[in-house]
């Protein structure tokens, strides 16, 4: 009798385990995490895109490992590639760029992350990322700023990044990003020498999401700091903001609230850059 009961419990646990393993990623997607982009896609044949990430790999001093949120780099990379663009990957300091290990947890990671993990070419670009100082941003049609907690430590403080984005914007290029990546716009200027973001409609990670996830240790917070810089901040909300999704186009600046907006932001950037429907 006893052994039978144990057997039933073991089997039940096994079934529950299988259901969770198979079902949880689908539930997360259903709630809005990395929801499949079903809108119009674009291509920019012969175009070049630059993805910029953080080089900062720790939360606080000696805290948990962090970096770029995986899918905020992988989804744009593959969407640009499918849009027939050449894609380079750069970071603030160059060299191997840090990826937030939490973004690759099995029920969080996207299918594009899986693709990255099996793609030696892309992995090579991540291991040997370009240093932004060495790049002429005006050679690119599109500049994409990826987020993740690491970006809150360096993107908004890099004068080099600010200067390079200023040059790219002046040259008529399309600038955009998601999540904490948009902090990279803070030090950039428009053609008239005014702060680029002032009076602009932009979305990024909300203060609510930061509170919900309990990670307020980072020195910058997109909603707070962009608003302080004069941004007309926009966002959507959900029962947890990490499942919300919002995208804003303001002229040549395209922003997405968080990791869920990657594909849409990238396609709209290609559209703004003169891309073709595909």
């Amino acid at each position: 009798m006893k052994t039978k009961r144990i057997l039933i419990i073991v089997i039940a646990l096994f079934v529950i385990g299988v259901l969770i393993r198979l079902g949880l990623p689908a539930v997360m997607t259903g709630m809005g995490l990395h929801k499949e982009y079903e809108g119009q896609r674009y291509l920019l044949s012969q175009g070049k895109a630059l993805i910029i990430t953080t080089s900062h790999d720790r939360l606080g001093d000696g805290g948990d490992k962090t970096g770029v949120f995986g899918s905020e780099m992988t989804i744009p990379y593959y969407e640009f590639r499918e849009g027939r663009m050449h894609v380079d990957v750069a970071s603030i300091k160059g060299g191997e760029l840090p990826i937030d290990p939490k973004s690759f947890i099995w029920f969080i990671k996207s299918e594009h992350d899986d693709r990255f993990l099996a793609d030696p070419v892309f992995q090579g670009k991540v291991k040997n990322s370009l240093k932004i100082d060495d790049i002429d941003f005006t050679k690119y049609d599109i500049i994409f700023l990826a987020g993740g907690w690491g970006a809150a430590y360096d993107l908004g403080y890099s004068k080099v990044l600010g200067q390079k984005i200023t040059e790219a914007y002046a040259a008529g290029k399309v600038i955009g990003g998601v999540c904490h990546g948009l902090l990279g716009l803070l030090l950039a200027q428009d053609e008239n020498g005014h702060p680029l973001v002032k009076g602009r409609k932009i979305t990024a990670v909300t203060d609510k999401q930061i509170n919900e996830l309990g990670i307020s240790i980072t020195p910058q917070h997109p909603e707070r700091d962009l608003k302080a810089a004069g941004v007309e901040f926009e966002s959507a909300t959900a029962f947890r903001d990490m499942f919300a999704n919002h995208v804003v186009i303001d002229g040549r600046i395209v922003s997405g609230q968080n990791q869920n907006a990657g594909a849409e932001v990238v396609n709209l950037m290609m559209k703004v850059a003169g891309g073709t429907r595909r």
């Binding site: 896609r41 044949s45 012969q46 590639r81 027939r84 595909r278």
Partner: peptide, 17 residues
Amino acid sequence: ILTYHTFTEEAARIARD
């Protein structure tokens, strides 16, 4: 060759549009 041909699913979307 990826850069100057149409993907199968793109052809389907063109047919739809």
